[in-house]
């Protein structure tokens, strides 16, 4: 995760980053876009858009690619006229408070669906931290926040996920 893009990104460099980060970008998209083909198209668009754009200040390459991907996902749902299942601003008090008990392998689909419901920084932190396996320090550097703020984001993201899972569990029961 050491890649940094400066102002002008040439084709060779973009291709190099595509080789390095394509899978990560694809995974970032795939948890939120159900179709594999759409996810692949969007992942390609992320790199093309990065090549076409001008970025003034050097930023973490993956962090920047995630931001582009985030915008493309929003555009994707906007164009389709459908709303993504976003539960990010839900009041925690409204969520059922029964403990979540289903982290066994059989119920992974619930967690996958809940993960797809996150968005923005919460989603980015969860993906980088638990799917891609980056450390808090690396995630903080990528999203341009302090380690403390990143831990707090991670905490809120997991709390939100727990709320979503509780709600699903409640609906099933």
């Amino acid at each position: 995760m050491n890649g940094h893009w400066s102002q002008s990104l040439d084709q060779a460099k973009a291709a190099e980053y595509c080789q390095l980060y394509y899978e990560a970008v694809y995974r970032y998209i795939a948890y939120r876009i159900p179709s594999k083909e759409d996810s692949e198209d969007l992942a390609s668009d992320v790199f093309l858009r990065a090549l076409k754009s001008n970025c003034d200040t050097p930023v973490s390459a993956l962090g920047w690619l995630y931001k582009i991907a985030e915008n493309l996902i929003i555009d994707f749902y906007r164009k389709r006229g459908t709303r993504q299942r976003i539960i990010q601003d839900r009041d925690e008090d409204e969520l059922p408070d029964a403990p979540v008990t289903h982290f066994d392998p059989d119920l992974k689909m619930d967690l996958t669906a809940a993960l797809g419901s996150l968005s923005g920084e919460h989603y980015q932190v969860v993906i980088m931290r638990f799917i891609e396996g980056y450390s808090i320090e690396e995630v903080a550097a990528a999203i341009g926040k302090s380690e403390g703020a990143t831990k707090a984001l991670q905490f809120r993201a997991l709390t939100k996920l727990r709320g979503i899972l509780r709600e699903e569990q409640h609906a099933k029961s």
Binding site: Y22, Y26, E40, V100, L111, T112, G133
Partner: peptide, 16 residues
């Protein structure tokens, strides 16, 4: 929450 984090770590990765 730590259990959810562990669950996330064990999620299947979509393959590009």
């Amino acid at each position: 929450l730590a259990g959810i984090a562990q669950g996330l770590k064990n999620l299947p990765r979509p393959e590009a």
